[in-house]
Every structure is written in structure tokens, then in C-alpha cells.
Design a protein around this nucleic acid. Structure first.
Lengths: 227, 227
DNA sequence: CCGAGTTCTTGATTTAGATCAAGGGAAAAA
DNA sequence: TTTTTCCCTTGATCTAAATCAAGAACTCGG
């Protein structure tokens, strides 16, 4: 039953029936209510997770309570692997945004599996590499782009994830989005209305309509308005 | 001859003599002059590198010429692996900072090796995971800390890499350091003199003396001055 | 359908840091 | 040594974005 799901998870797809069976055998399904903590930063990690249903934010908090969201994981996304392969602690915290089902993979069992199934190892290397690519883009955004440029990049990224749709679902509150882009809700709100008045987007109830993709691409590329 | 070196590379150490021999067999040693391009962003990657001697900066550039340095690789560091395991292009550019010797590992040969040697696969997962942890810290710094906090974090990180020394070698120009911290040379210079006048550090010719580790740790943790 | 609690927007003000603009010093070349 | 070049520092100004402060608009439980 979960095997059918596992066969479609990025990083597990393309694996043999046999591999899938072994993966399923060691996995544990866990349900979480909205707002539950999956793990906290610095916690010892004895396994990693894959989202079956729902959403999980991966985040860091500063001593004065400000939050930086590193990633929002959706169905099919892996998280918490770093603690499995290196060090032992999670580099960030994880909390569900909505009621969610997660598959848990215990560390030792999964490491054993990798040891005997090179195809699984290669898949995991690929998953980690893609995450690395995304984090690289995030550092680039924060270091080189102004907030409007970061928002444009993010909207285009979302559109890509949603099959290139012009009408896209934000899937997170504006405040959370602000935390992902390294800014505040106030600033983000102003930039949304600026982009709207420029005719780049239209924005209503958690949905955004891309009206000028070219303009957004330019803004994302340049990192700021060029006029 | 390179085998001796390989045996000490993080990610390869701890492997059997046999594994090391196979790794050596597929590696190619390449020499680079200072300032040479190893690869450019978006280039197709047909392998990855390990620094034997020297230093390599991994960076992104914005259209208006500003540079964000993601990492400076030193002896023993791996780079360019993302292109081997996922996608095919390098997510950032790489250029030598000094005359450098690099070991190159061709994609297909290395993937084959991983397929037959699970221990190598686990080592690579560990290397990628550590990189992920570092990038996570970088995003946190950029999103949550002010420049003085980022500098403090970086100095402590360097000190750790240099066996906890109080006197540490920056190993890069102030301008490069500014690019690593997501700021400008002017701002960095001001912050160096501020930290000096507060008695936190002393600074001369590429060396920094940590005079108040507690103060720096506090600054790094808080992300800014608390007075 | 209504009220309580969020979350979002808009406005006024402040501020960290970028930018612009000269100097000053150390290293490399001559 | 002297000159050239590059990098670093210091100063003055400007600006993107944070912060502070109300309102307005959704959301949800009753």
C-alpha cells in the first residue's frame, strides 16, 4: 500500500521492485497534526523522513525569535537526511504546517540497505545534490538580490513546480513566505502590491496570477528593478 | 603517490586499501595557475574535483558583476559533485585563488565505483551532508544575522578549522571575505575596526587574533550587538 | 451570522548597510 | 629605490528595508 507511494517518490522512483520492497519494509508511517514538531534543531537524528501527505517547514530560529524558513517540504520531499549520513544532529528544526503523514526511515536499517543496494545509494546522492542546488540558489538570492528579485525568483520556482502554471498556489501564509525570503511581512506586503500595480502579478487569497512572466524573469535575473 | 594523499582526504579516509586503489586508478591530477577558471556556472559537469594543494573559490556572479562566494575549498575539500549526481550542470563557478593541484574524478568511472563499493557511496553521502550543513548555516547567517554577527561566526568557524587557534590566518583578501559574508569591502572594513576597538580582535596582515572568544560567540549567537 | 483572534495592509519613522568619493599603504614591477 | 597598482580604510551621503503603530480584512468557532 505504501509501496505504491514509495515507487513515486523522487529518489525512489526508478528503483527495482525488490529495492522498493526493502525500502517499504524498513519504513514507518507516522501521522502528525498541524503545528506539531517533527524534530528540533540540534536534536540527535536516528533517521530521516519523506512527506506522504501534507507540508513540513524546515527552519532556524534566532535568539530573539525571528525565523528563517529554509524549505517547505511537500509530498515526495525528503528531509532530515543530513543527520543520517554525517554528524548526528539535525541542522534545523521541522514542524508540520498542516495535518501530515510522514514516512520515517530508521538510520541503521537504511544505512544497511544502502550498503547492499548501490542503486539506492545513487538515488540518495541525487536527492542530496538537488537539495544542495536549491540551497545554493537560496544563498545567491539572499546575498545578491533585493527582496523584489527574491520574490520574483520564488514565484517562478513555484510556477515550475506546478507544471509551469500561470495561476499558482502559494501554499503558505504571507508571513511564512517572508521568512523564506529573508524579509518581514510588512516589506513583503508592500512588494506584492508594487508588483501588482506594475501589472506583473495579480494576487488573491493565497493564489497568484503571473501576468508578465518576462518581466518577472528579468527581475529575478537582475535581482532588482532596473528602471 | 597520490594514494597516500587520497587516504587522508575527508570522505576517503577510513576506506580499505582496495577502495583507495580503485579511487586512485580513476583520478586525474590537474595543475592550475592562480586565477584560472576550473569551470563556469551552468557548464556541463563530467566529474568532480578534490583539492590537493591550493585554494578554489566557488561563487555566483550577478548580472551587474557583484560576486557571492559560496565557499573556499582548501586541501582535502571536494567540489563540483552536484553535477555528478543530479542534473548535469554546475550550480556555481569555480576559480583558483592561488596555484593549485586538483584531483579530477570522471563522472562515469566514479559512479561505477560507487555502484560496486557501498562504502564509497556512504562516504560521499557524508561529504554532501556536511556541505549541506554548512550551506544551511550560511543561509541562517544571511537571513538572520547582521554583518558583525556573520563575521563573528566566520572567525569562530575558521578558528575551529585551525585547531581552535587564537591566532588565525584569514586565507583570503578582505574583499573576498566581504563576498563570502554578503557585504561590501567598505562595510567589512568598518566592522573590523569596530571589533578591534571593542577589544574583540586584533587584525594585521591577513591574520586575526581572537582576544575575546566569549564576546565573539555571543555576537555570533545573537546575530548582532546587544548593547 | 456574528464576534474574537489571526493575519494582512498601509503609513511614518528609523537604521544598517550600500554607494560614492578620496586618500593611504603595502606589494609588485621597473 | 622609485613608481605603479591594487587593496584597504575613512568619510559623507543615500536608500532598501526594518521597525513601530494602527487599521482593515479574512478565518473560524460558536
Amino acid at each position: 500500500m505504501t509501496k505504491k507511494f514509495i515507487a513515486q517518490v523522487p529518489g525512489f522512483n526508478g528503483l527495482s521492485e525488490e529495492d522498493l520492497g526493502k525500502i517499504e519494509a524498513i519504513s514507518v508511517l507516522r501521522g502528525f497534526k498541524k503545528g506539531e514538531t517533527v524534530f528540533v534543531e540540534e536534536e540527535e537524528g536516528n533517521g530521516f523522513y519523506v512527506v506522504v501527505k501534507g507540508g513540513v517547514k524546515i527552519f532556524k530560529v534566532s535568539p530573539d525569535g525571528k525565523e528563517a524558513i529554509l524549505h517547505i517540504c511537500r509530498a515526495g520531499d525528503h528531509f532530515g537526511q543530513v543527520a543520517v549520513y554525517a554528524g548526528k544532529t539535525f541542522p534545523a528544526g521541522a514542524e508540520t504546517l498542516v495535518d501530515s503523514d510522514l514516512l520515517f526511515f530508521p538510520r541503521q536499517a537504511f544505512v544497511n540497505l544502502i550498503g547492499s543496494e548501490p542503486s539506492v545509494a545513487l538515488s540518495m546522492l541525487s536527492v542530496l545534490s538537488m537539495r544542495l542546488r536549491e540551497l545554493t540558489a537560496q544563498v545567491e538570492s539572499l546575498a545578491l538580490k533585493e527582496v523584489p528579485g527574491r520574490l520574483a525568483s520564488y514565484l517562478l520556482y513555484l510556477s515550475e513546480k506546478q507544471e509551469g502554471a500561470e495561476r499558482l498556489v502559494l501554499g503558505s501564509s504571507k508571513s511564512q513566505l517572508a521568512s523564506m525570503l529573508g524579509t518581514t511581512p510588512e516589506t513583503l506586503s508592500r512588494i506584492f502590491s508594487d508588483l501588482s500595480s506594475r501589472g506583473f502579478i495579480r494576487n488573491s487569497r493565497g493564489e497568484v496570477l503571473l501576468l508578465n512572466r518576462q518581466g518577472l524573469e528579468n527581475l529575478a535575473e537582475q535581482g532588482r528593478f532596473t528602471d
